[in-house]
């Protein structure tokens, strides 16, 4: 993250800029003061933390990724004026609040074990052997409090300690690997890496396989669709467009098995 501009924005700038991705401030839009790493800036009240930081001149070379709340690159920690409580959020998703004091934590060192998922024994003991620090959890719950995705981090760590990998995989499903849990951990656990290993084991060895998927793959392999695929790829563009526009479509919210297309040749 580079700080291209060291001065807080002035009134004149506020008047000419816009919101949205380019931060153009509409007429009459209010600004609020925020503190980025201790320094005060006036920013439009409608912006997310990320846009507000760019608005005042920060340029992200780390700590920004998808800007859609899913990549986990822009973890941010903030406090509100006069409150002891720490708050956590993704900079691209959290709207600024007056007098918030924030810093980004784009990366936090966390122990990541080396393993070959192909050779691993799908048991809780394998997880314990790779991450013995798991047992240093003191159930302080700081991890769950820190999670910007509302994952019950402490609960999935508990589930792993109890040997229930399936439960842990499900509980940690929404994790975006931002690492805020690890940054707050008293036992120095890399929760998110442990959970990822658990989900990998779960996905590869424990989760039930979809039987219909296997059947469909067999059908494809047997050449059932070769003809139609060939016909489609060789089709004139206009004919392809016509077919696309005239194609049948499953109605919204149709219950499984309730609707069937007229052309059932390939079902």
């Amino acid at each position: 993250m580079n700080k291209a501009q060291t001065h807080p924005t002035n009134e004149k700038q506020n008047q000419k800029i816009a919101t949205g991705d380019r931060a153009i401030l509409p007429d009459g839009a209010k600004t609020v003061p925020i503190y980025v790493m201790g320094k005060r800036y006036e920013v439009p009240e409608t912006l997310t933390i990320m846009k507000a930081m760019e608005f005042v001149g920060f340029k992200f070379i780390r700590g920004a990724g998808c800007r859609g709340g899913i990549c986990g690159a822009c973890s941010t920690v903030y406090r509100k004026a006069g409150d002891y409580k720490l708050h956590f959020g993704l900079a691209c998703q959290t709207v600024v609040e007056p007098n918030m004091v924030l810093t980004q934590i784009p990366f936090y060192p966390a122990n990541r074990a080396v393993y070959n998922i192909e050779e691993i024994e799908p048991t809780a003991e394998s997880v314990y052997a790779l991450y013995p620090e798991l047992f240093r959890c003191v159930a302080c719950n700081n991890c769950t409090k820190a999670c910007p995705m509302d994952v019950e981090v402490m609960d999935y760590i508990s589930a792993i300690k109890q040997g229930d990998l399936a439960k842990a995989a499900v509980l940690s499903f929404d994790c975006i690997q931002c690492g805020l849990c690890a940054s707050r951990c008293m036992g120095e656990l890399p929760q998110y890496h442990i959970a990822q290993l658990v989900r990998r084991i779960y996905g590869k060895y424990i989760q039930p396989r979809a039987e219909h998927l296997k059947k469909r793959v067999q059908e494809i392999d047997s050449g059932k669709y070769d003809g139609i695929v060939k016909a489609l790829t060789e089709m004139e563009l206009e004919e392809l467009k016509r077919r696309y526009l005239e194609s049948e479509r499953e109605p919204n919210m149709a219950l499984p098995g309730e609707w069937l297309p007229k052309d059932q040749e390939y079902l």
Binding site: N111, E125, S126, Y128, A129, P132, E133, F135, R136, K161
Partner: peptide, 22 residues
């Protein structure tokens, strides 16, 4: 040092040994 304990030992020991030991 938890990281230096042999993996085979951790696999064999009951959780209660690691929790109390750590």
């Amino acid at each position: 040092e938890p990281s230096r304990l042999p993996g085979e030992m951790i696999k064999e020991y009951p959780q209660i040994a690691m929790v109390s030991g750590f």
